[in-house]
């Protein structure tokens, strides 16, 4: 969710139980402007909040001209002081997948994961314990990148890929119509395309290369991992991810207003197949 007009936009996700206290709103309005200025970002987004047991993390992201590349992620516990998160590497992601339980709220906290391995063969096999230590800050970074990877979405046509391969906001995007907004195929994963190659040639022939450079969420597995609802009749579209409960996307049909935010515990819902 863009920090510009945050106090207005946050109301669109209020019906999903996502609200900011007046104090937080005021603090964010101040600190995000400074953050943008200091880092010379084109745009700053309030990414969301990750609930910890003792304390919560507020997450903000800054983007340069290319919305895809070079995004930077910051976290804050008081909405004022922002700390840069290290970009998530594959190894960090692999390690943090081992961490169980909720975030604590202390970035220096270390999760321990003990794995027993069998060393040797036959009768000589000895159980050896291998301890992996995962720093909460690393886990935070990898969870954020995972959420971005899995569920960050935008309406189709909101971004275009220009001939220089940069991804920029589409100035002439006028919003989806109500009928379009009711279909999952009009929402795209805001990430490098992974599944475009799987489409048939015939399907790809009908695509607009400037717009359809991302995967649509229609093919997400399991089917039904998105809960699409219209609020106020058809005046506001809300898409909630059931895979990452707490991720909420809104779009006002036929306007340029859209955005998404994650307010959750930072745990993936692995039980989803049982729950549908």
């Amino acid at each position: 969710m863009e920090c510009e007009g945050l106090h207005l936009n946050i109301d669109y996700v209020g019906s999903s139980g996502i609200i900011l206290s007046p104090e937080q709103k005021a603090a964010l309005q101040t600190s995000l402007v400074i953050l943008q200025n200091e880092n010379k970002f084109n745009r700053v987004y309030l990414w969301g909040k990750i609930l910890g047991v003792k304390d919560d993390y507020f997450i903000a992201q800054g983007a340069y001209k290319d919305e895809f590349a070079g995004r930077k992620t910051f976290y804050s516990k008081d909405c004022i002081h922002w700390g840069l998160l290290p970009p998530a590497t594959d190894e960090m992601k692999k390690k943090s997948a081992l961490a169980k339980g909720r975030f604590t709220g202390d970035p220096s906290y270390e999760f321990e994961h003990v794995e027993t391995k069998k060393v040797g063969e036959g009768d000589d096999a000895v159980d050896e314990e291998e301890t992996t230590i995962i720093k909460e800050e690393d886990r935070l970074s990898s969870v954020i990148s995972e959420i971005d990877e899995d569920v960050r979405i935008v309406p189709r046509g909101a971004f275009v890929q220009v001939p220089t391969a940069e991804v920029v906001k589409n100035r002439s995007f006028e919003g989806l119509s109500v009928q379009e907004a009711a279909k999952l195929c009009n929402f795209m994963h805001f990430r490098e395309a992974k599944r475009l190659d799987l489409k048939t040639l015939l399907q790809r022939a009908n695509m607009d290369k400037a717009i359809d450079f991302m995967d649509s969420i229609e093919d997400d597995v399991p089917r039904g991992s998105w809960s699409l609802q219209f609020e106020r009749g058809s005046g506001l579209l809300t898409l909630r991810s059931l895979q990452w409960p707490g991720y909420c996307f809104y779009h006002v049909p036929a306007t340029q207003k859209y955005g998404s935010v994650y307010f959750g515990t930072g745990e993936k819902n692995l039980d989803l197949p049982f729950m549908l």
Binding site: S15, G17, I19, S21, E23, Q24
Partner: peptide
């Protein structure tokens, strides 16, 4: 509840 960042929209 709003002071604590909990709840729903005021209009709602």
């Amino acid at each position: 509840f709003e002071q604590a960042g909990i709840g729903l929209n005021r209009e709602e």
